[in-house]
Amino acid sequence: MSSHKAYLTGASLWCNLGKTPNEITRTVHSLNAHNYEIFLQEHFAQKPYYHLLESFESEEKKLYTCIDYVVKKAIEAAKLDKEEQAELAIFIGSTAMGISLNEESYTRYVLSKEGKAFEHIGYGYLGEYLETLTHSKHKALLFSTACTSSVNALAYASKMIEQGVISKALVLGIELFNQTTYNGFSSLMLLSKSNIYRPFDEKSDGIILGEGCSALILENQPKHTDDFYYKSSKNICDIYSETTSDPSGEPIFETMDGALKAAHLHLHDINLIKAHATGSENNNTSEANALNLLFEKYKTHAPVTALKPFIGHTLGASGCNEIALMLLCAKKGFLPHTLGFEKGTKETSFTPMREPFTCKDKPLSILFNFVAFGGNTTSLILARD
């Protein structure tokens, strides 16, 4: 039996919506079916993905500025002093890690023949940077399981706190634009041509990538009366295909059901399901079928929402980024709705939540779902009393 709970005492996010809780949550609350497409048109007029609004002199400056900012703000939110910061075990989840730095150094080398073609081999330097930044006495752990990277990092950190192995953790999710990733998704013909994110919708035509960086602080004691805590998680490897999920939805269903069983919860105890909802044809089908199976088993429905229409698909960082976004909104008294949905696909037996869910001072249990290339699927439940 667990001797501790893992509480999320600090959260921060820097994404296309901004970098302060007020500007991020204000924009989320203001977007609706009437102004969503105008918002996207204005944003994508500059770049064809959900991008940070700021400019940086180099990719290296961008990476470290983002990391510095979100870590500092999460630590401030958790009210950690220097001694407490040293107790932070560090967990990093990402798909691209620092690929953008190597792209930059390679371009510089080709043009000038100066320096090295690749400045970094491996990504241990990111862990070392965070160890120095926080003065942590722990060695950092890096997670790279495609789109479940940072949620798996969060689950692992939470279990270590529950078991008393560590008392505090910093979980970082980071995904910044790089041409390698963008070209990869383009070659698979997964990118949206309409530049409108429409998860589960019959007009959905693919993924829109996003960049963002977030940090979550976990502790074995709460710091605020409305702190969420880790309830459970389940991870399953779907061996159907390297790049697609089993369209029957059974592995995704088993993951969600497994998280409910581990938490000793019934589906009617869940206030909201945050779907992975990438908008790809395969994900629309497999996840919709998985949710149908879940609703059939428990003879009830739970509200479903999707967050990628707000911030794009941030790949390995999507776990941290989307959980941070949800927590920031919950502190403002609402949970985000789904944008871009009009009429569901033939598999979609439910209507995603169309309006923000008011949750001020309410107990909550939220199931977060993430599905990755390679078949890695994770469901995680967070709650507050």
Rank of each mutant, 00 (worst) to 15 (best):
S233W: 01
F295P: 07
S241Y: 05
A288Q: 03
S245R: 05
T314F: 01
E322C: 07
L315N: 01
E254M: 14
N292T: 14
S245G: 12
T243L: 04
G279S: 10
D257G: 08
E322G: 06
I239E: 13
A259M: 07
G319Y: 02
F295R: 06
D269I: 02
E250G: 00
K274S: 13
N284G: 07
T285F: 06
A259C: 12
N271I: 07
H313A: 06
V304Y: 02
L272C: 06
G279L: 05
L260D: 05
V304Q: 01
L307A: 06
E242M: 12
N235Q: 14
H264L: 13
A306N: 02
S286A: 15
S232C: 11
N235I: 12
I236W: 02
E296K: 15
H268T: 15
V304L: 07
H301I: 13
G258S: 10
L260P: 04
K308C: 05
L315V: 13
A275I: 02
V304W: 00
D269V: 08
N289W: 02
A302F: 12
E287Y: 09
H264D: 14
L307P: 00
G316T: 06
L267S: 08
G312C: 10
D257L: 12
A259N: 06
T305V: 09
L294Q: 10
P303V: 10
H268A: 12
A302V: 13
S280I: 03
S286E: 06
K299M: 11
H266Q: 15
G258T: 11
D257P: 06
P251W: 08
L272E: 03
F310R: 01
L272F: 06
P247I: 05
N292A: 14
K274I: 15
E254V: 08
T305L: 05
P309W: 05
T305C: 11
A259K: 02
N321C: 15
A288D: 01
N284Y: 03
T314Q: 03
S241V: 08
I239S: 13
T314D: 02
P303S: 14
A306F: 00
I273T: 05
H266I: 05
E281Q: 14
G258A: 12
D246P: 07
E250A: 12
M256K: 02
I270K: 00
L260T: 11
C237I: 11
L293T: 11
L272S: 01
H301Q: 15
T255R: 00
L293D: 00
G249N: 00
Y240F: 15
K261F: 10
K231W: 02
K231E: 13
K261A: 13
G316C: 06
F253P: 03
D257Q: 15
S245V: 08
I311T: 11
M256E: 05
A290C: 13
V304G: 04
A275T: 02
P309T: 07
P303R: 07
F253M: 12
K308P: 00
K308W: 04
S280F: 05
T285K: 14
H264Y: 12
D246A: 10
S233F: 09
K231P: 00
H266P: 01
N282R: 10
K299A: 15
E287P: 05
S232I: 09
K234C: 15
T243Y: 04
A317C: 11
E287L: 10
A302H: 09
S318K: 03
E281P: 04
N284T: 12
L294S: 10
